[in-house]
Amino acid sequence: MTDGKKVKSHKSPILSSSEKGVAFATPTPPYGMNIKKLKEGAATAVFALAACVSILAVALICIFLFANGIPGMSKIGILNFITGTAWKPGNNIFGIMPMILGSIYVTAGALIIGVPAGILTAMFLSRFASASKVKILQPAVALLAGIPSVVYGFFGLIVIVPAIREVFGGSGTSMLAASILLGIMILPTIITISESALNAAPQSYYEGALALGATHERALFKIILPAAKSGVTVSIILGVGRAIGEAMAVMMVAGNQARLPEGIFKGVRTMTSNIVMEMGYAADLHREALIATAVVLFVFILIINMLFSVLNRRIKS
């Protein structure tokens, strides 16, 4: 493929208006038109081309991941690769089942911690808190969302891991530590999106429930929460996406042993940390196996994205 050309268009769409993206956007200018019209046409083309960069980017990401990952996967055997329970790069054994399960368990753990706390906080912000409390809490939650994942990871390493070591013994780096940390990290996502869903639920439902004799609390949990169900689900799906894709923070606290998960106090390795840990020195088939790990992760993410857009569309309509 013509990599050089593609990149040029990525960096400066203005220079490459000869590429095919233009045709649809330019309202076929009759030649000999005045300069103003020409200018308008050129501008439209530039804007449209810029908008197409996201298409180009997704295409390139797919092409490069799949082209580099699929060959390795087929050399190992797709079934062997995905269902294999041993990851021993030294012996050319590459099975990523431990990492797939690791990612799923850690994400599930994060949901157990993050979802109830997140939804309850959203409920508080939406229906219990006074305006002044909302004014303080909302920016605070946004702040929680902005903390870099290495800082979370560092916090996990110096606070959560030692705490688990003290209480439960063992090394402390464990599935539990990763779940707690990810649970914290997905809180802001769940809170903000659930809160806006709760705010958007029709007030008349709530009033109707009150009129029928329900208490404020009962009306909220039996009527408003079900009415906001789709939005809350979307928040959880986005939380899953964030948790399953997180690399650095998880890697710092999860222990990263490449074996089937044995228990919540034992170490696990996720797909993301598998890539980060070994990409630095991997070569040949090992390297291809790591890229193939990313392909599997990418497929997970695409499924999550799809669920998200289906639900989102349902909310809007």
Binding site: G241, V276, A294, I301
Partner: peptide, 19 residues
């Protein structure tokens, strides 16, 4: 364009790194 930019915003940073 909307679908792809939505997809981009859901891709984890490690995949960007690898790409």
């Amino acid at each position: 364009i909307r679908i792809t930019s939505e997809t981009l915003s859901g891709i984890p940073s490690i995949i960007y790194g690898l790409f």
